[in-house]
Design a protein around this nucleic acid. Structure first.
Lengths: 182, 182
DNA sequence: ATTGCCTATGCAACTCGTTGCATAGCAGGA
DNA sequence: TCCTGCTATGCAACGAGTTGCATAGGCAAT
């Protein structure tokens, strides 16, 4: 389980409430680790009970109070220990690949609009990555350690999206060829 | 949920027992959809109850009897309906990316051997893909629809592994630079 | 005025996925 | 001979993840 660790990293980068974490997971972090607010609140309570993080009540005017969490010593230790553990292989759930093989038993042409939709969403994500890179890393020759590591992860995301776009074009060409009766 | 659908596709390509399906999921299909034998048996029972698949008891000598499943009419219908439904966005769980960002709060050098291990396993998988391509698709100019679709999925796997290898090299270079104190 | 959205946290119920264990006969090697 | 491993199926318990709903005040637009 790595949701705890993903939350720890996020809190080390910047303390925040459960709600704020949920929004971060929707945006940046969620690109390589998804989580709903329910999961986050549940795990935060457990982590606080275990002493990994500390909470501070913050009163706000005009909106509900919030609990701002930050990483504590035992949390840092747990993260360091986890870093040294061997990682489990990534489990992939590529639904579109299942659909493509399923199309052999139905009409390949029925998948085209679906694949086009995927292509658009990957193109949009790539554009967002590139925009975020410009905004957050304007000068690539002056990055500290944290930024270097954030940037190498971002580069992975960018390359993944580029590769996926090229592959989806390949898939579309194949589907069009097959449904045209080629 | 798409485990049902992945199983249906596999049974349409070739009928088989739960045990055989589990091994297929370990090998080919498992590269884009993982499942343990427990999940598979549980889902097979449900699918049989729903009439999606039909079972036939097969006695064997020297080994336990098995139940060979094959896709039934309602299963094909369900698959066709699913093909036409919009797909949920793929949820990614990229633990290594979390670790890389976590390394900013510990020693980046501690991650190097971990990343090297990943690199090796991706290189091995790429080699297996390429070997499987040679074996299963010796003549790329004479493929039927099913093989065309299987091959375009395989091409996706190959490109994914190539991209991942290049990225892991990038990660390694970055980690080495940072831990050398550059 | 009312509708709908945003911040902020949480309960309850459910499904999905994993882990450990059990059975049971057969084959092969130390 | 004992141990390991393969085929083949399954139970039980747990942990992870999702979905629907609830509360509750404030803001902005219709």
């Amino acid at each position: 389980m790595a949701l705890e660790h993903a939350i720890l990293v996020s809190l080390l980068e910047q303390p925040g409430s459960g709600y704020e974490l949920a929004r971060r997971f929707d945006r940046s972090i969620g690109r390589f680790w998804t989580a709903t607010h329910q999961q986050i609140y549940r795990v935060l309570r457990r982590m606080e009970a275990d002493g990994w993080i500390a909470a501070q009540e913050v009163a706000q005017d005009g909106r509900p109070d919030k609990k701002v969490y930050s990483a504590a010593g035992p949390g840092r230790d747990a993260l360091a220990a986890w870093l040294r553990e061997p990682v489990e292989p990534e489990t992939v759930r590529h639904e579109l690949a299942v659909k493509i093989r399923a199309a052999a038993f139905d009409d390949p042409g029925a998948l085209i609009s679906e694949v086009e939709r995927h292509r658009e969403s990957h193109a949009a994500l790539l554009a967002r990555y590139l925009h975020g890179e410009q905004r957050d890393f304007p000068d690539l020759s002056a990055l500290d350690t944290r930024q270097e590591l954030q940037h190498v992860v971002l580069r992975g995301g960018i390359e993944y999206e580029r590769m996926t776009l090229a592959w989806l074009d390949d898939v579309l060409a194949t589907l069009r060829r097959l449904s045209a009766g080629g």
